[in-house]
């Protein structure tokens, strides 16, 4: 269970930080950078989640005998 609890906070932190950077950059008038940063943050989190989903599907397969 303690397996991935940290990741929850990681994602939340990334989200908050990305939002902050986005706001700051927007204030500075560099909307371009702001969007790129948001996209980058989203990609990182998505990668984490994709890994986890793969893990999940593998687990379900093992548990429910999807041997074929």
């Amino acid at each position: 269970m303690p397996y991935n609890v940290d990741a929850v906070f990681q994602i939340a932190g990334i989200g908050i930080i990305v939002a902050m950077i986005h706001t700051v950059l927007k204030q500075m008038g560099k909307e371009d950078f702001a969007h790129w940063v948001t996209l980058f943050g989203f990609g990182v989190v998505l990668f984490m989640i994709a890994m986890l989903i793969q893990d999940l599907f593998q687990t379900i397969k093992n548990v429910f005998l999807f041997r074929s």
Binding site: Y3, N4, V8, V45, I49, L52, L56
Partner: peptide
């Protein structure tokens, strides 16, 4: 949304 999904997966794997 990503966070919610992630949480769901973690609980399920547990």
């Amino acid at each position: 949304f990503l966070l919610a999904t992630f949480t769901g997966i973690v609980i399920f794997i547990a």
